[in-house]
Write a protein that binds this DNA or RNA. Sequence first.
DNA 1: AATGAATGAGACTTCATTCAT
DNA 2: AATGAATGAAGTCTCATTCAT
Lengths: 195, 195, 195, 195
Amino acid sequence: MARSKSGDDPSAKERILAAAEKLFAESGFDATPTSRIAEAARVPKGLVHYYFRRKSDLLTALVKRLPDQFIEPANVVVPGDVAASLRGLVAELDARLSDSRLLSHLLWREADTHKDVREALQARFQTIVHQVKAVIIAAGAGSIALADVDSAAGLFALAVSYRHSVARHPEDPPMMDREVEFIADALTLGAGAKT
Amino acid sequence: MARSKSGDDPSAKERILAAAEKLFAESGFDATPTSRIAEAARVPKGLVHYYFRRKSDLLTALVKRLPDQFIEPANVVVPGDVAASLRGLVAELDARLSDSRLLSHLLWREADTHKDVREALQARFQTIVHQVKAVIIAAGAGSIALADVDSAAGLFALAVSYRHSVARHPEDPPMMDREVEFIADALTLGAGAKT
Amino acid sequence: MARSKSGDDPSAKERILAAAEKLFAESGFDATPTSRIAEAARVPKGLVHYYFRRKSDLLTALVKRLPDQFIEPANVVVPGDVAASLRGLVAELDARLSDSRLLSHLLWREADTHKDVREALQARFQTIVHQVKAVIIAAGAGSIALADVDSAAGLFALAVSYRHSVARHPEDPPMMDREVEFIADALTLGAGAKT
Amino acid sequence: MARSKSGDDPSAKERILAAAEKLFAESGFDATPTSRIAEAARVPKGLVHYYFRRKSDLLTALVKRLPDQFIEPANVVVPGDVAASLRGLVAELDARLSDSRLLSHLLWREADTHKDVREALQARFQTIVHQVKAVIIAAGAGSIALADVDSAAGLFALAVSYRHSVARHPEDPPMMDREVEFIADALTLGAGAKT
DNA sequence: AATGAATGAGACTTCATTCAT
DNA sequence: AATGAATGAAGTCTCATTCAT
């Protein structure tokens, strides 16, 4: 009886979080009543507030579920081939972030109103920038101008973030593999080297 | 005080829109009660709904106030110098968009929930992409690979949009002139030409 | 210019009343905003309140437009034939009341809330009863029991009122010629005579 | 006072319905704010909307409380005496409907605006017509013309409905036993038989 | 006489949150 | 630990009515 509702169902708390993530992403934080979350999670309304005293605690908990992005650069670096390395990094980030696409987008939207969320997103952005730089340097050592690395990593992180967080509507400008190629090539050719 | 409501004061309707823009940008659309807008605009609560029957009409009206972005490419193109041309374009767009920074940011956030807003932003994005392409082609004719223009224009527009729409918190990664330079150089050097 | 909007149009005041009658009957008094009346009457909103300071004045004015129901019994009485006389009376009332069907129904509905209206309807009902009695007596003199006249006239007036005021939905039980026939026959045959 | 909310008090939900019935009947549906209902029921305003999400749900719930009118014809039929049978039926209906006089009247008034209500009233009317016919046929078998039964039942049902639904003001024409007698006699005497 | 901008009271409704059980 | 009834604050929106012109 203690686990009457379990079996292999995720725990009630887990179901609540999953429902919140889905509904927040669909309709926005403010437009999603906790009652609808309870309904979607198939738990009584009271339980939502039992686990998450304030509604915003749901958002905070969701932020904590953001998957870690730490990637072993070694796994994607193809020494001497920046383009291939970046392609590998894109694939790796995609795989790792695709699970949390809804979540990323939702956080992006609520970042303004919730400090928690904003900080989490900023940290995530910085993490990506650092990883990109590490990969570029590891792959391009000797063949690229270091002066370009910051610019390229910034653009790259921007593109990836945009693709995973902001651009969610089918009509949005797709974030495009050719641009990534463009950056890689530019680096290799030493664009900006003269700067 | 005798002429508090007349003289050089903007009209009540204008004050309402200005207050809405400010408050929406500060706290978000949902978190801003119309009553606070009325208060900030120094008009009675009823007048807000007299001019804007539904709250979302305020957003629609705000969208219509988005300044036109049509720029005469001729004004910024420096023939033969892509970097200078893009720098000119950035300056031009900055000047034109800086007035509506709050507005852009607010719209970006509400794009998910309001179709009007989403469409306006998408149109605006496309406009910028087209202008960038026109400038690049005009400035770089003969010296750049046309195959790169789309990639470069996409990245550039993305950067500009991001800078004007998303990055608003002082802690956000600043949108960076060096990246623009990087793109220009890459184009000139023919990055991606081999694709 | 004084009659700039006239021509053969009914006066603005008249148009307002007509619009009010139609809209009140369609949606009810409370559910009809004066603004919609103004719109339907093609007059500025201010004019409605200029002519009818309070909204309820519209109802009062409408009551005053109730057509007089005074019928010359002589016109419908067929001496010696009660059935024919009642049939004539029905036709006469129908002709006279059909113009005001909307109005009757509307008044019926609002009778509870507006004393004016209630009194007008009661007066109208009494008028009809009296007329029915007069017709029956004139037509049936000698051949019917006077004791029945009140009962018959009451039923008859009830049927007519119902038909003109309450039963407006197509699905409502139609008010039925056979019943009128039934009453006439009953009178002639002396139903209730033994009472 | 310690048990003000418990004991033999009807439940809060019941009190709300009772208050709504009373106030709607007194002032009409539109003119009764839910806040006044809450006040009359001695419950906080929020509770009214907790039980009845929309105000119109109150009406729907009230409709469902309409007492069933199914009467065992056997209980009122006096074989061979139509008049007595109809008198019995009137008494029976009166006893059964008198509790819901306010309710009936209120529903009648709102029938135009609320489809639910209209349908309920129409069904109720048909039920009464059928019962009247059954009683007449059972009581008058052999002694009345079947051709008259429909007319008579229609008139009778009309009178009863009117009496229970419309005529509520003391000044309204009373609904009158003599009319019922009149109908019974007419049936027995074969009024309309020649039709 | 006529107009429509302006006003503010108040209605319905939603919902996060509390609390007794 | 869990529940769902209960609460009341707050929001959006409608509208009759007033008033300056």
